[in-house]
């Protein structure tokens, strides 16, 4: 269970409040108008945005004060998910050993993660030698390898075409099912929410509300969501 307990984030004149509980193993979409604070909410959970008030609790542990790497979380950002000067193998291996000093068993684990996302034989490629979809797969291989119980997606596939994006989201959903990970994904596209997420959090007017069951929410949207959906 991920709990946001009376969380307030204040940045200059921006204000976001959130009091949420997300059950372990669920897949949750985060939707809302631009600038409402979807990314800020994820950033706070991941540890990049400081809380003004409140606590974030995962599995009965307060993680609010932990630095990002110590939290039980894998994040995929909108861009810059790979280091451009490191090979696909090294980019994935960083998820296991930040020192990049791996033993034989660990090297096998990295290879297996690349196989899982369909990139067998691409170990030595630099990101610039991979297509956009393949770059996303490398980042996902690292998520697989990290095996953390919470996965946050801040629209990492928004530069991909619709078919490829759907394919990647399905891959994420499969990976999360295999490991039992909880997924939170920011999206602009309600078809993504429909396809992947059982539940949806709505961020609008300075408040993050939910999670709601996705299908009923989209069929009978409240005022704030209706304005956004148009």
């Amino acid at each position: 269970m991920l709990t946001l307990e009376a969380v307030t984030i204040r940045q200059d004149d921006f204000l976001l409040r959130a009091a949420l509980q997300i059950a372990a193993g669920t897949r949750v979409a985060v939707i809302g108008p631009s600038g409402a604070g979807k990314s800020t909410l994820l950033g706070a959970i991941a540890g990049f945005v400081a809380l003004t008030q409140g606590r974030i609790i995962w599995a009965n542990t307060d993680i609010s004060a932990q630095s990002p790497a110590l939290r039980p979380i894998s994040v995929l950002f909108q861009d810059n998910n790979l280091f451009p000067h490191l090979s696909a193998f090294d980019n994935v291996a960083l998820g296991l050993r930040p020192s990049l000093r791996l033993n034989k068993a660990e090297r096998a684990q990295v290879k297996a993660a690349l196989v899982r996302v369909g990139l067998e034989g691409y170990e030595a490629r630099l990101p610039s030698q991979l297509s956009g979809g393949q770059q996303s797969r490398v980042a996902l291989a690292r998520v697989v390898l990290q095996g953390k119980p919470l996965v946050l997606l801040d629209e990492p596939f928004s530069a991909l075409g619709p078919a490829l994006k759907a394919e990647m989201l399905q891959l994420v959903a499969d990976i999360c099912s295999e490991t039992g990970a909880t997924l939170l994904m920011v999206t602009h596209d309600i078809t993504d929410a429909r396809a992947i997420a059982d539940q949806t959090i709505l961020v609008a007017d300075g408040v993050a509300e939910g999670p709601f069951e996705t299908a009923p929410l989209l069929e009978n949207p409240p005022e704030a969501l209706r304005a956004y959906l148009g």
């Binding site: 979380i73 998820g95 930040p98």
Partner: peptide, 8 residues
């Protein structure tokens, strides 16, 4: 942020 999240 990527480096932070990976504990580098």
């Amino acid at each position: 942020r990527l480096a932070d999240s990976l504990g580098l």
